[in-house]
């Protein structure tokens, strides 16, 4: 798919819908993490409407691309994106975080079609993404695995264990995205527990790092 004016316009429209739904979901639930969800909307929009191969009619297709939302508290963004994509009914969004809803506070792969990994306890998603990428290599499949980390989340030591493994096992079918919104619950990440310089750290662990600054 070529990136042109009309595609960008279409993607922007989807991103606006997703943002609107996030605000509505968190408002209805009177609970949730709107900030960390809103900061990943553009990235999710690109992934689900441009980059990733996923099939609505076959959500468990073994050749599909996978996405792991390691920063699971940003679930409203994932749910709103999956709803925009058609995996979740839009009415369900209003039940976010309420009893007997599919939409748990943090993503549950057993409840929601289109969710590839259960997450919520920070620091664990990259290891799971590595496992998916390793399985792809073993089975000689061409799917790719995308993993979204929070910039506060990478304070967890397991992330760096996993970064080491990804490099050691040469997982070139893996794409890791760090959402560098510079905030965590107790304040700015640079003040709470600075993980900077994030790019140099991942480079040192063997990653090819592309920087995309907010303009």
């Amino acid at each position: 798919m070529e990136v042109n004016e009309s595609l960008l316009k279409e993607l922007s429209k989807k991103a606006i819908n997703i943002r609107r739904n996030i605000i509505e979901m968190v408002y209805m639930a009177s609970s949730g993490h709107p900030g960390g969800a809103l900061s990943i909307v553009d990235i999710l929009t690109i992934l689900y409407f441009y980059e990733m191969k996923v099939d609505l009619s076959n959500s468990k297709d073994e050749n599909r691309d996978r996405f792991v939302l390691s920063k699971g508290h940003a679930s409203p963004a994932l749910y709103a994106t999956l709803a925009e994509k058609g995996f979740i009914k839009k009415e369900e969004l209003r039940k976010f975080r309420s009893i007997n809803s599919l939409l748990q506070g943090h993503p549950d792969m057993k409840k929601i079609p289109g969710v590839d990994m259960t997450t919520g306890s920070l620091g664990q998603g990259l290891s799971a993404a590595n496992g998916m990428a390793l399985a792809g290599k073993l089975d000689q499949k061409s799917y790719r695995v995308y993993c979204m980390l929070g910039d506060g989340e990478i304070e967890e030591g397991q992330i760096w264990e996993a970064a080491m493994s990804a490099s050691h096992y040469k997982l070139d079918n893996l794409c890791v995205i760090v959402d560098n919104n510079n905030l965590q619950i107790d304040g700015e990440i640079s003040k709470v527990m600075s993980p900077y310089p994030i790019d140099k750290k991942f480079e040192a662990f063997g990653f090819e790092v592309l920087r995309n600054r907010w303009s």
Partner: peptide
């Protein structure tokens, strides 16, 4: 061999399991 990194070992095993291993 996941090295001396048990947390990553468990998480990697989980990811492998989601792909039928």
């Amino acid at each position: 061999d996941m090295g001396i990194a048990e947390q990553d070992m468990i998480g990697t095993a989980a990811g492998l399991a989601t792909c039928g291993k």
